[in-house]
Simulated assay, not measured.
Amino acid sequence: MSGDQDKTPTLGITVCKTRGTPPFHETAYFKQLTLEGQQVGIRVIVFCPKEVDWERRSVSAWQYSTRRGQWIASSFPLPLLIYDRCYYTNTRHYLDYKPHVNKLVNDPLIRLLGRPLGGKWQTYAFLAEDPDLRPHLPETRRLTTMQDLYTILRRYRSAVIKPNGGSHGRGVAAILPGKDGIRVRGRTRDNRTFDHHLVNRSQMEQWISRFTHGSRYVVQPYLPLYTTDGRPFDIRILMQKSERGEWVQTGMAVRMGKPQTLTSNLHGGGKAVRAEWFFSRQYTPELRIDILEKLQWLSTQVPMRIESRHGRMVEVGLDVGVDPQGRVWLLEVNSKPGRSVFMLTGEKEVRRRSIELPMRYARALLDGQVGGSL
Results as ranks from 00 to 15, higher is better:
217 Y>P: 12
288 R>V: 02
126 F>L: 15
18 T>I: 02
360 R>D: 01
76 F>G: 03
238 L>G: 14
320 V>Y: 13
263 T>Y: 02
250 T>H: 01
313 M>S: 15
47 F>G: 04
345 T>W: 12
97 Y>C: 11
227 T>P: 10
45 I>A: 02
174 A>H: 00
87 Y>H: 11
306 I>F: 10
87 Y>T: 01
20 G>E: 06
265 N>H: 15
187 R>G: 03
92 R>D: 08
74 S>Q: 09
158 S>M: 06
103 K>D: 04
274 R>Q: 14
363 R>C: 10
152 I>G: 02
353 R>C: 00
2 S>C: 05
242 S>H: 02
211 F>R: 13
7 K>W: 12
272 A>F: 12
104 L>D: 07
321 G>T: 10
318 L>K: 04
125 A>Y: 05
160 V>Y: 01
179 K>D: 15
116 P>N: 06
318 L>T: 07
98 K>C: 08
213 H>L: 13
17 K>Y: 04
221 P>L: 12
303 P>S: 05
95 L>N: 15
172 V>G: 06
159 A>T: 01
181 G>I: 01
154 R>P: 00
329 W>F: 09
336 K>W: 13
10 T>E: 05
42 I>E: 07
31 K>H: 14
111 R>I: 04
17 K>I: 12
296 Q>M: 05
196 H>P: 00
142 R>V: 07
371 G>H: 04
124 Y>D: 12
116 P>G: 09
255 R>D: 07
201 R>Y: 10
268 G>L: 15
225 L>R: 07
355 I>S: 04
312 R>H: 14
367 D>T: 08
190 D>Y: 00
240 Q>F: 13
107 D>R: 01
288 R>H: 06
19 R>W: 04
212 T>D: 10
180 D>P: 00
332 E>T: 11
247 W>Q: 06
3 G>Y: 15
155 R>C: 11
121 W>L: 14
189 R>H: 11
292 L>G: 00
136 H>G: 00
286 E>C: 07
184 V>G: 02
94 Y>M: 03
170 R>L: 07
6 D>S: 14
122 Q>W: 08
200 N>A: 10
62 W>L: 03
72 I>L: 14
14 T>C: 08
229 D>T: 15
149 L>V: 11
84 D>R: 08
165 G>Y: 05
144 T>W: 01
310 H>S: 13
310 H>R: 09
46 V>H: 06
123 T>N: 07
161 I>F: 05
97 Y>T: 06
300 T>P: 00
175 I>T: 04
148 D>Y: 14
295 L>G: 01
20 G>I: 04
14 T>N: 09
365 L>T: 09
44 V>L: 13
352 R>S: 06
5 Q>L: 11
357 L>P: 02
162 K>T: 13
230 G>W: 08
44 V>A: 02
182 I>S: 02
170 R>C: 10
239 M>W: 00
139 E>R: 15
359 M>V: 07
328 V>A: 11
307 E>S: 06
291 I>P: 03
147 Q>W: 10
212 T>G: 07
304 M>R: 15
97 Y>L: 15
253 A>C: 14
202 S>A: 13
117 L>G: 04
287 L>T: 13
254 V>G: 03
